[in-house]
Each structure stands twice: as C-alpha cells, then as structure tokens.
C-alpha cells in the first residue's frame, strides 16, 4: 500500500465510528420523523399504513402562528440577554488572576451538579404567588399584590436565561482567554475611550466565541419545553409544548413529527446559512472545541 492510500485508510478507520454514530442516532431518526409526517394515524394512537398529506395540511392550524412567533421571540430574547450578560462575564473571568479564575469557572459550572428539573422547580417555588420573592417585592412596593411572577412569558424568559447563561459564558470566556488584551491598550492609545475600545476591538476579537454562544443558546432555546411547561402558563406555550402534547396527550405521532420536522428545518436553515457565510469569509466553522 502506498503511504497516501494507507493514510486514507487510516482516516476512514478513524472517522467511521463517529460517522456511524451520527448516521444511526441522528440521520436515521430525523429521516424517520420526516417520514412519519406523511403517515396516517391509526385508531389506537399508533402509526397507520399507507401515506397521506393530511398531517401536513393540519399543520396550518390557526393557533400555530402565535405559538411559533412566541417561540422565536422568546429564543431570540434569551439569546440576546445571555450575550449581553455573558460578554462582560467572559471578559472579567479571562482577565482574572489564575486562582480567582478557577473559582469563577467552578461557580459557573456549579449549577450543572443539580438536576435541571430540580432547578426549574426551584424557580417555581421562588416565583410562586405565595413564594418569598413575591412577598418581598410586594412588601417593598416594587410590584402590586396581584402581579403574577409565574405562569407568563417573562417567567419563561427569566428561567431560560438562567438555564442557558453558562452555555453562553463558556465559549465567550474561551475566546476571551485567547484574546490579546494588549490590543485594548493599543486602542486606548489611539484615542478610544474604554467602552469604544471594548466594542470595536474586544467584541470583534471574540466573534467566534460569540457565534458559538448564539448557536448553543438559540437552538436549544427553540426546542425547550420543560421550562414553559413548568413556569409558563396556559397562554405561553412554545412549539416544544405542542410537540409534547401531540405525542403524549393526543397520541398523534404524525402531527408531532410534522411539528418536529418544522422545528428542525427552522434550526437547520439559519445554521447552514451562517456556516456558508463563514466559509465564504474563509474562516473555520465555530465549534465547541473553543469551549474545552
């Protein structure tokens, strides 16, 4: 075997397991979900025989545009708030002394040691109409006695930001840590005020981290259903809730598949667009490697 062929063989050997994993656990299920959309429902909540376009038609439910819109704006708002909070955090952690930085990173990761579900329930207790936060705020007079902290879109936004913030901080910190902070001095030297230097030199300097943060916050946010289920009310459903409802309550798997496929396409198309733009600019795609 020539060295070139051997190299190709080695490459194939090394990449096969991960490719197989992706194929079996990602590509095949996605294709199945897309396919089930075109299947009829049988009487007992299973999947019937033959093919039909009924489900596709039923996706044009007049209630859906509002839910889709809510899902999109809540996810966008979550992403925006996370970025606004994560950029200064990442900057601060990257500029900290070694020991202090270890501490801060530990604190950022600490919430992951508790179950996600438990943490969301904790928020429910905190925000509850009879909960401590509500009483405290009402006592100070910041909110009226009838204001609801829970069961609305604001509560969802708050808990989503809380949940996804560490995922935004980590890639931004990773990029900030590699940032050459002498560039900020150079900007100051050239006449920039501190904020201007931060905005026109630091922020572009960590743009890869920012992009990664956007992806790892926005995409899971679009699909979230536990948070709106627990802290949201009947009028703050997201697509995730609808998928869950169609699957577990209505036993309409084709309809749930249709919604899932719609969500998948909604995520995939912008992502492909971003990647294409990146490729065009001759830059590497953002990757989670920056987090490690």
């Amino acid at each position: 075997m020539t060295p070139a062929r051997r190299a190709r063989w080695t490459e194939a050997l090394v990449t096969t397991p991960s490719l197989a994993w992706l194929l079996v656990f990602f590509v095949v299920p996605t294709v199945i979900i897309f396919a089930i959309t075109f299947k009829p429902v049988d009487l007992y909540g299973g999947i019937g025989k033959g093919w039909t376009l009924d489900t596709l038609k039923s996706l044009f439910n007049p209630n859906y545009p509002a839910i889709v819109w809510r899902t999109v704006w809540l996810s966008l708002a979550t992403t925006a708030v996370c970025l606004i909070l994560a950029v200064p955090c990442g900057y601060y952690v990257a500029r900290s002394s070694d020991r202090w930085r270890q501490m801060l990173l530990l604190l950022i990761i600490l919430p992951f040691w508790t179950s996600f579900l438990v943490r969301v329930f904790a928020w429910k207790v905190l925000l509850h109409p009879e909960g401590p936060l509500k009483h405290a705020l009402a006592a100070v007079g910041l909110i009226g006695p009838d204001t609801l902290l829970l069961y609305n879109e604001k509560a969802i936004l708050l808990v989503m930001v809380y949940t996804f913030l560490p995922f935004a901080i980590l890639p931004i910190y990773a990029a900030a840590e590699k940032f050459d902070f002498r560039l900020l001095e150079a900007a100051r030297d050239l006449g920039a005020r501190p904020l201007r230097a931060f905005w026109s030199v630091f922020v572009p300097g960590i743009r890869r981290g920012l992009l990664t943060a956007v992806l790892v916050v926005f995409i899971p946010a679009l699909g979230s259903y536990v948070i709106p289920d627990i802290v949201g009310g009947p009028n703050s459903e997201m697509i995730g809730n609808k998928i869950a409802q169609r699957t577990f309550s209505d036993r309409n798997l084709p309809h749930a598949s249709g919604l899932s496929a719609f969500l998948t396409l909604g995520v995939l198309l912008p992502l492909l667009l971003v990647l294409a733009l990146q490729r065009k600019k001759g830059e590497e795609a953002p990757s989670m490697q920056e987090v490690s």
Binding site: D180, R182, L183, E185, A186, A187, D189, L190, V201, P204, G205, R207
Partner: peptide, 14 residues
C-alpha cells in the same frame, strides 16, 4: 497626544 509602537505591534487582527 502621544502614540505608542508596541513591542508586539498590537495590530488589530480583524
């Protein structure tokens, strides 16, 4: 009204 040439040049990479 003072400008610096830094040892590392500190050119903005972007």
């Amino acid at each position: 009204k003072v400008n610096t040439i830094f040892q590392s040049y500190a050119l903005f990479p972007h």
